[in-house]
Structure formats: structure tokens, C-alpha cells
């Protein structure tokens, strides 16, 4: 049996979160004395798949069926189930992404596997049990969860596992067919609309985020956020009221009822730090808060802070970054 890792690809490249997933899977394989095989979904190139060797993957299965380029829940589930059967995999690791969670939940029923999503650490396997740590209560807590049964599926939270990079190692890429039929494509998209992302950095994948709240006063001031984001290579985000009034698109809304992010750096500009906002960002490694109110609750959750006016501070920060390089 080998550990099966699901890697998501886009535009030929393996997504960063999938490099983390691959590294997670290969470390679990090592703990269990076996190898890790990947099954790739989305648009991939053979050269990039072979490079998964650097994350400890020995073999990659790839079905070049063109309709698999876009996410199709039915077809992806069948493909991964077939790969798991071929590899006799008892453990499947995927990303805690919209794709990973959609597919993982269906697979868990089909394969009679236990499932843990939002997992942040490698498993503990003492005494024959299998325990993973996962985020719960929207970032306000963690839970150690025991996975029962012979088969297990683990969805790994983004940016929680350091990707391995063993330069020069390559994986063997094998073409693979799951004999998909039209019925498996019932939920195939009629159309795919990608966001127009400033600087091309997607918020869910970003390791740095610059975020703005109501203190930014209006959408016309977002260039200040975007300039700093561009300078440091960050994605942009916002608080809920900002997306509620359409200053920014909804997919930038972070927090308990938006998306949860855990970048290495989160810079909050003119955000008060309400508990629902903090829930979505407090697993960020370093938090910087810029707020003119020294009593703003966000300072209690911050590593670095500037008590000041965003309109004065943000241009200075962007300038300082430019002076660094």
C-alpha cells in the first residue's frame, strides 16, 4: 500500500498548497514505512509533475482527459477512488480547499474511510491510534481527532505544513485512466470565471496578506493597500463590512463567515479586530496592525503595531519596502 496524495494543478503548475499536501503525504508514508503516490487533477505538465519528487513523491498518476482540466466533483471523486484502489491506499491526503473538501467528503463515504479536514500537523501514531490536530471553532481552538477504521482521509490546511524541497529528486509520471463516462461529468461547469487578481496572488494561497477595513474610508483608497501588497508580494483582503457594501469583492472577505487565512504575514489596516474577524486570521504567523485608535482590540492579537493614520502610514511602508531593494 502507498499513501495517496491528491495534487491540484492550475495552468500547468502544481499549486503551492498541493506542494504542502505532497510533503505531508510523503512524511506520513515515511512514518508508515511505505511510499507516497500522487494523483494529479487540473491542468498539469509532465515536467512539473515529475518535480513532485522534491516533495518526496515517488510516482504520479495523471489522467489527461481534457474535461478534467476544470473541477468536476463527480469525475474527480471517481478518479481518486480508482487511484486509491490501484495503489491499495489506506491513507489519502488532500488540500483543505474547496476542491479537496468537496472530493474528500464524497470519497470518505465511498471508501468507508474516516475523514479529518482542516488538519494542521502530522499525525501522532503512538499505541496504534491515529490522531491528527485540526483547527476548530473558526480558528479559536484546535482539536485532536482520533481517526477510526482502516482507511483515513486527511485534508491539510494551507500554510500549516512546510513544503519539502529535496533538490534533484524526480517522481515517475504514469498516465492513468479511470474509465470516466459522461455521467461522471454531470456537474461539469458550463463556464469558468477566474478573478482578475492584482499581481496574480490568490488570497487562499498567499503567504502574505494586506487587508483593509472600514478605516480605509472608501474603495477609492484601496490603491494604498494594493501598492503595499504589490511591493511585498502579498494578496489583498478585507473585513466583512467592506465586502458587504461592495467596496471590495466578496472573495476577499476574511473572518469567521468569510475565508480563513493563515499566512506568514497579515497586515491589518483600519480594522478594529472584532472577534469574528480575528477568528479568520489569528493563525497567521506574524500579525501587524495599523490603527489610529490605541484601544483597538486588534492590538491585543498583534505582534507588531503602529498607532497611526493609515493614510499617512501606508505610503511610508510602501516607500520603505522600495528602499530595501
Amino acid at each position: 500500500m502507498s499513501v495517496l496524495v491528491v495534487v491540484e494543478c492550475d495552468g500547468g503548475e502544481v499549486k503551492k498548497s498541493s506542494l504542502e499536501v505532497a510533503s505531508y503525504g510523503s512524511q506520513v508514508a515515511q512514518m508508515l514505512g511505505t511510499t507516497a503516490t500522487a494523483v494529479a487533477v487540473g491542468e498539469a505538465t509532465e515536467a512539473n509533475l515529475a518535480k513532485l519528487g522534491e516533495q518526496g513523491i515517488s510516482k504520479v498518476l495523471y489522467d489527461a482527459e481534457p474535461r478534467l482540466k476544470d473541477f468536476v466533483n463527480g469525475a474527480y471523486t471517481k478518479l481518486i477512488a480508482a487511484a486509491a484502489q490501484k495503489e491499495d491506499s489506506k491513507i489519502i491526503v488532500l488540500a483543505n480547499s474547496n476542491i479537496g473538501a468537496s472530493v474528500g467528503s464524497r470519497l470518505s463515504v465511498r471508501l468507508q474511510a474516516s475523514l479529518a479536514t482542516n488538519v494542521v500537523e502530522l499525525p501522532k501514531t503512538d499505541g496504534g491510534s491515529f490522531v491528527v490536530k485540526r483547527g476548530a471553532f473558526s480558528g479559536k481552538a484546535f482539536a485532536d481527532v482520533k481517526l477510526e477504521g482502516e482507511r483515513k482521509i486527511i485534508a491539510v490546511k494551507k500554510n500549516s505544513i512546510e513544503a519539502l524541497h529535496e533538490a534533484g529528486k524526480t517522481a515517475q509520471v504514469e498516465s492513468f485512466s479511470a474509465q470516466l463516462t459522461d455521467a461522471d461529468f454531470a456537474d461539469a461547469p458550463k463556464q469558468v470565471v477566474m478573478q482578475d487578481q492584482a499581481g496574480g496572488i490568490l488570497l487562499p494561497e498567499a503567504d502574505k496578506v494586506v487587508s483593509g477595513g472600514r478605516g480605509m474610508k472608501g474603495p477609492e483608497n484601496w490603491n494604498l493597500i494594493e501598492d503595499l501588497a504589490k511591493a511585498i508580494g502579498a494578496a489583498t483582503a478585507c473585513s466583512k463590512p467592506v465586502s458587504d457594501v461592495d467596496w471590495r469583492p466578496h472573495h476577499e472577505h476574511v473572518g469567521q463567515t468569510g475565508i480563513t487565512v493563515s499566512p506568514n504575514l497579515y497586515i491589518a489596516c483600519g480594522i478594529s479586530g472584532a472577534i469574528q474577524h480575528l477568528a479568520g486570521v489569528n493563525s497567521s504567523k506574524v500579525i501587524v496592525v495599523i490603527n489610529k485608535d490605541p484601544e483597538a482590540p486588534f492590538f491585543k492579537a498583534a505582534d507588531y503595531g503602529i498607532v497611526g493614520d493609515v493614510f499617512d502610514v501606508l505610503p511610508k511602508l510602501t516607500q520603505a519596502v522600495k528602499e530595501l531593494s
Binding site: 470518505s108 482539536a143 481527532v145 492579537a301 503595531g305 503602529i306 511602508l317 520603505a320 519596502v321
Partner: peptide, 28 residues
């Protein structure tokens, strides 16, 4: 098929290091 063995709260932050606004570049 799963059971929670234990819950934990996230580790507390060390406390914020404040940088004066006049010196904002220092943050970078």
C-alpha cells in the same frame, strides 16, 4: 468514525511591539 480526543486553545501572543508612526519605515 472520528472522535475528539482533546481540545486546546491557540498559544497566546507575546504582546505587541509598537513602532511610532513617524518611524513607520522601521516596521519594514
Amino acid at each position: 468514525r472520528t472522535a475528539v480526543a482533546e481540545y486546546a486553545l491557540p498559544p497566546k501572543k507575546q504582546g505587541v511591539k509598537l513602532i511610532p508612526a513617524e518611524n513607520a519605515g522601521e516596521l519594514i
